[in-house]
Design a protein around this nucleic acid. Structure first.
Length: 856
RNA sequence: GGUCGCAUAGCUCAGCUGGUUAGAGCGCCUGCCUCACAUGCAGGAGGUCCCUGGUUCGAGUCCAGGUGCGACCACCA
């Protein structure tokens, strides 16, 4: 070994991740391990498409967890020799990015309208050039083995082509259409948003009762509403057809207060006779239900709130220009003046808010583009029903299916500038609509009348482009080598919040356009909450920055911690688990120092002769089998815990302590075993803790290349040895009991006690590790611990021994009582499995024997 | 309103198809700076497994009801 490196190994007793991580990552990148050739078939290869983070984003805990899981599987499969590709890229994130840049411009005192569309979009691109790669660099800090040379962006030229191809095909099929429809208008982003981008929140409002006089009568119909300002757009009043109170009024009219409009009184099933007075004002322009009712009854659709979120001229000059809140006050005042307000009471209900801007959704009718989903959903339902796409944990399969079976048209247009501008051209002269094959070469003049064409102003929903991520990133619609080698991808890990928004849509588009499901497995991971159980969120200030955690504890520690704390249920962020990961890295480094600095130079297969060697080699194989199976089934927490327990408890606490004398003597067999165990342990841990394992590996005498591409251990069945396991475990158990006994009777830690053994002698290590000389003779034993008879000594306090004995006797008596009771139960003896009963009898015997030993 | 999930040690969580004395990490207590590691080693204390019924020889685990949280979906003004 290079003297400088040897010195480092000898002198460094604390593992320092910050020194190691960037260096190692550079080595991997330079070697090109993460940039596989587009060869082989999807069946033999392994591929994953990263859920593309927003270009505006910074790495948060969700990314870190998701990335740790993906990287663990990608690395394991790369080590297995599979051609492995982890596709990386970012999402242009329409609303989020546009508002970031708008905010920046605002600070400069400019609005996007001052700049105009073209200039504004240019500015966003400039912003993206400067800041857009930040999150990609952050993934490197995590150790993510993505293909950084194949980075994609949803607005790359090739990607845009794919988006347009999809749009065109869906349009030609008639799935995409334009319609005046009620949409979720987000006054914050000045755009329509889809149902999935709306979240409902409980809000306390006032429920107003308003009297609508019935035409030609002195009766009034009292309606209840939380949004009196929308009455200005009322076009009917509805009652339930079975409601006897109003049967005679159906077909008549009432008069809209303040406005004076005649409103037909209609009957509709939707109205709940139990609610309020059983009469419902109908505002098709500003309420989704009313819109449906309006369409059923052919009602007039009036819109009084404009895209700017303020009341329009339609609302009448008294109210035009007001915000809805101002208008509410004004309308209520006016109603009160007219004597039409007959009640108000507090009312709590759920109200839609924009997930993007946080503002209250203003439902209104506007002209938007929609995509019909039924036809696309059908095969995507089948694919999941038949498990061509397996969703785990299993309960999410049903959630997916339930949603897909009730899928509704998707509003895909957004009134933004940043995004894929909808590839549709209109001719105002002859009212034709064109969707060209190649938008880049779109005609300038109308094919029918020669009139001037103008392109649709709106852009597509960001999720429209992310929906095709798994194949568009591989070059679709061209028939590329990447597509042939890596599609379908192997699996997807995701947070459940984007199961519909993203996962479902990828399955639909994958089947429709790429001819196959986009992935075979979907693993829905848990959500890591803040330490106090709240959501991690920037606005709440509850977020924990993964980069800070990496700075302090190292990427390996964070990765281990996140995987260890992950679960099928949501969990609170656990500093202790990250700490555990850090300690593990340190322990790995130090155990490796012990081995590497003391092992004789041997290049041999393990030697399974002595029972402790047979034991640890068997345990190693069992651990490899178990950890591998857990990783393959996305059970990261147990994989991490088992690898940890094996390495720490069995390998370090026991095996290393047992074999130290042999190691120091330079025995070759134990050196061979230790180097073999170290190699396999490092490889097994590498998918979880890539940096420290790679660093340690760099000192291993068997090293011929990086661990990142070293073979992943497979199980050597010949090393399984249940007998050796049982035998050594008995020795460990006895050692533990002897140590506990010593501590209990307060023997000084250093003093060696003498004892003799009844019957077969235990393994050599038992006496050594418990500081007992087991070859004593003569004298009466003062205590018995299993087969060990402890002899009197100046270090042993007789009183403490008596107390200890008393305590043990009590424990045993209670166990004897329990076992006796169980065996006295005839039904247990008769009906429980025979071996269970036998076991219970044996136990009872043991307890009784020990009790007798203790002088009972 | 519908669906799903969760309640186990002081804390954060494991406990598969019901079966040893219910586990881990952290924290706590007691010893140890033992020549890999004090980011360490050894030992220990600590649990009416939310409540009530039920099924069973046997229930943390299965069933019913209840209580308390949480998530998702949903057009009742």
């Amino acid at each position: 070994m290079d003297p400088a490196r040897l010195k480092k190994l000898e002198e460094t007793t604390r593992y320092d991740p910050s020194e190691v991580e960037s260096r190692i990552f550079g080595e991997w990148m330079e070697a090109g391990y993460f940039h596989p050739a587009a060869e082989g078939s999807p069946e033999e290869n392994f591929s994953v498409a990263i859920p593309p983070p927003n270009v505006t984003g910074a790495l948060h805990m969700g990314h870190a967890l998701n990335g740790s899981m993906q990287d663990a599987l990608v690395r394991m499969n790369r080590m297995r020799g599979k051609n492995s590709l982890w596709i990386l890229g970012t999402d242009h994130a329409g609303i989020a990015t546009q508002s970031v840049v708008e905010k920046k411009l605002k600070a400069e005192g400019v609005s996007r309208h001052d700049l105009g569309r073209e200039e504004f979009v240019k500015r966003v691109w400039e912003w993206r050039e400067e800041y857009g790669s930040r999150i990609v660099e952050q993934y490197k800090r995590l150790g993510a083995s993505c293909d950084y040379e194949r980075e994609r962006f949803t607005l790359d030229e090739a990607y845009v082509r794919a988006v347009y191809r999809v749009f065109k095909q869906l349009y030609d099929k008639g799935y995409i259409y334009r319609d005046n429809y009620i949409v979720n208008w987000d006054p914050g982003s000045h755009s329509a948003i889809s149902d999935l981008e709306v979240e409902n929140r409980e809000v306390e409002d006032t429920l107003f009762s308003i009297d609508y006089p019935v035409e030609g009568s002195d009766r009034v119909l009292t309606v209840a509403t939380v949004r009196p300002e929308t009455m200005l757009a009322d076009t009917a009043v509805a009652v339930n057809p079975t409601d006897e109170r109003y049967g005679d009024l159906v077909g008549q009219h009432c008069i809209l207060p303040l406005v004076g409009r005649r409103l037909p009184i209609i009957a509709d099933e939707h109205v709940d006779p139990e609610f309020g007075t059983g009469a419902l004002k109908i505002t098709p322009g500003h309420d989704p239900n009313d819109f449906e009712i309006g369409r059923r009854h052919g009602l007039e659709e009036i819109v009084v709130i404009g895209p700017d979120g303020r009341l329009t001229e339609e609302a009448g000059e008294r109210f035009a220009g007001m915000t809805p809140a101002e208008a509410q006050v004004a309308v209520v005042d006016a109603l009160r003046e007219e004597g039409a307000l007959s009640g108000e009471e507090p009312y709590t209900h759920s109200v839609p808010f924009s997930h993007r801007s946080g503002e209250r959704i203003e439902p209104l009718i506007s002209l938007q583009w929609f995509c019909r989903m039924d036809e696309l959903a059908a095969p995507a339902i089948e694919a999941v029903e038949s498990d061509r796409v397996k969703i785990a944990p299993a309960q999410w399969k049903r959630v997916y299916l339930d949603w897909m079976r009730e899928i509704r048209p998707w509003c895909i247009s957004r009134q933004l500038w940043w995004g894929h501008r909808i590839p549709v051209w209109y001719c105002d002269a002859c009212e034709e609509t064109f969707v060209p094959e190649d938008p880049a070469a779109a005609p300038e003049r109308c094919g029918s009348c020669g009139g001037e064409l103008r392109q649709e102003e709106d852009v597509l929903d960001t999720w429209f482009s992310s929906a095709i991520w798994p194949f568009a990133t591989l070059g679709w619609p061209d028939d590329t080598p990447e597509l042939r080698a890596f599609y379908p991808t192997s699996f997807l890990t995701t947070a459940r919040e984007i199961l519909f928004l993203w996962v479902a849509r990828m399955i639909m588009t994958g089947l429709e356009f790429a001819g196959d499901v986009p992935f075979h497995d979907v693993y829905v991971h848990s959500v890591i909450q803040a330490r106090d159980g709240r959501r991690m969120s920037k606005s709440l200030g509850t977020g924990i920055d993964p980069l800070e955690e990496i700075d302090v504890h190292g990427a390996d520690a964070l990765r281990f911690g996140l995987l260890a704390m992950s679960s099928t249920q949501d969990v609170r962020y656990s500093d202790a688990k990250v700490q555990q990961g850090r300690d593990l890295a340190n322990k790995l480094w130090n155990a490796s120092r012990l081995i590497l600095l003391n092992a004789a130079a041997v290049e041999a297969e393990p030697v399974a002769e002595r029972v402790e060697d047979r034991w640890i080699l068997s345990r190693m194989e069992q651990t490899i089998a178990s950890v591998t199976a857990k990783l393959d089934s996305y059970d990261f927490a147990h994989a991490a815990a088992e690898a940890y327990a094996f390495f720490w408890s069995e390998l370090c606490d026991w095996y290393l302590e047992i074999v130290k004398p042999r190691l120091y003597e330079g025995e070759e067999a134990v050196s061979a075993n230790l180097l073999w165990l170290l190699e396999r342990t490092l490889a097994l841990l590498h998918p979880i803790m890539p940096f420290v394992s790679e660093e340690v590996w760099s000192y291993h005498p068997s090293r011929s290349g990086h661990l990142a591409v070293h073979g992943f251990p497979t199980v050597e069945g010949r090393l399984f040895d249940p007998e050796a396991e049982a035998e050594v475990e008995r020795g460990i158990e006895l050692t533990r009991r002897l140590r506990a006994w010593r501590d209990m009777v307060e023997v000084p830690a250093r003093s060696e006690l003498t004892a003799r053994v009844e019957g077969e002698a235990p393994h050599e290590f038992v006496g050594r590790l418990s500081r007992f000389a087991l070859d004593g003779n003569g004298g009466d034993p003062i205590a018995a611990v299993g087969p060990v008879r402890v002899l009197a000594s100046a270090d042993i306090d007789a009183e403490a021994v008596a107390t200890r004995l008393q305590k043990r006797r009590e424990e045993l008596r209670s166990e004897v009582t329990r076992a006796e009771g169980k065996l006295a139960n005839e039904k247990f003896v008769a009906r429980a499995p025979a071996e269970l009963v036998e076991e219970e009898r044996a136990k009872l015997e043991r307890y009784r024997a020990e009790l007798e030993e203790l002088g009972e």
